[in-house]
Design a protein around this nucleic acid. Sequence first.
DNA 1: TCTGGGGTCCTAGGACCC
DNA 2: TCTGGGGTCCTAGGACCC
Length: 326
Amino acid sequence: MILYVRFRLPSLQEAGGVEAVLPALLGLIEEISPVVQALPPDAALVDVRGAERYFGRDAAQLASLLRVRALAHCGVDCAIGAGPNPMLARMTAREAGPGTTRVVAEGEVAGFLADKPVAALYGTGPATARTLCSYGLDSLGRVAAAPLAVLQRIVGARAGRELWERARGIDRTAVVPNAAVRSVAAERSFTRDELDPVRHRRALLSLAEELGMRMRGESRVCRSLALTVRYADRSTTTRARVLREPTAHSATLTDAAYRIHESLGLQRARVRSLALRAEDLTPAERAARQLTFDPADERSRRIEAVADRARARFGPQAVVPGSLAA
DNA sequence: TCTGGGGTCCTAGGACCC
DNA sequence: TCTGGGGTCCTAGGACCC
C-alpha cells in the first residue's frame, strides 16, 4: 500500500520557517519506510509495501505509528490516506479528517470511485471535467464504463488512455524518492498596474538575483529562462529563451531577462506582475562553462561568490544590488 | 472557501538536419 | 537535383496539482 501523509504544520510566522520542520518529519517516515517522496511544503508519499512485510503490520497500523511519532517528536498532527497506488492514496487523503487515516483497500476501489464526480479524479481538473460532462460523462463510474476510443476522441490519445485507466483505479506511477527539482520560479506583483519599464526592470533584476542565489545555493544551473507577464485583465504571455550556456550567474540571468522583456515590446501594457522561471536545471558540476577571458566577467562572478557567503552568514538582505537598495 | 504563487507535464507547430 | 520522411530542438500555450 501507499500512504499520502499531509501534515498540519503551524503557520510560517509562529514556526520560524516550515523548512525546518518537514525534514525532521521525513526523517521519522524514513524510519518506517525508506521509499519516501517529499511533496513540499507539507506532504509526502510513502511506499509501505516493504514495511508491511518487514514489521508485520498493515498500512493502517503503520499510519497510526507514524502519527504517534510525528506528534511525540515534532508536535505535528497529520491526515493520512492509504491506497493501492499513489493516485488512490492522494484521493483517499482528501477524505481523511485531521488526525485520522482513511484506507481504500484493493477490493474497495471500484466502489470508492464509482459515484464520484469526474472532477474528483486526480489529474482531471475543471477544464476536462467540463468537457466530459458535456458528453454526459459526469461520474467516474460512467467514465470507467465508456470505451477507451470514445475517451481518446474526446480528450486526446494520451490523456484519454490515462483517464480510462485512472477512472478504473489504475495508476502506473511510483513513489520516487528525492526527485530533483526541474525548475525554480519567482514572481513580483506590483501594487498597481505598472506601465513603467524602469520599474519592470527593477523587478526583473530582483527576480534574477533571487533565482540565481537559489540555484547557486543548491549547486544547480539552468539552461533556459522564461518570463511570464500578467496583465490587468489577468491574461498572461510567456516567452522563453535558451541561454547561450547553462548558468546560475545573476548578471547573465538579468541580461537574458531584460532581453526577453524588450522582445515583448510592452508599450502601454498594464502589467500586474512579472514572473521569472529558470528551467531545465542541471547540477552545476555537469555544466561545462566556456572559458571566458573577460576580466570584468570573472570579477563579477567572484563578487557574487563573496555576496553569497555574506548572505549565508547574515541573511538574504545582507547584500542587495545597488538599484534595489533602500 | 477562495486565492495566489510555485511547481509539473503535455501538445503542437515550425525550424533545422540528415 | 529534387523530394520526402523522420528525428530533435525550440517556443508558446494549456491543464493540472498543492
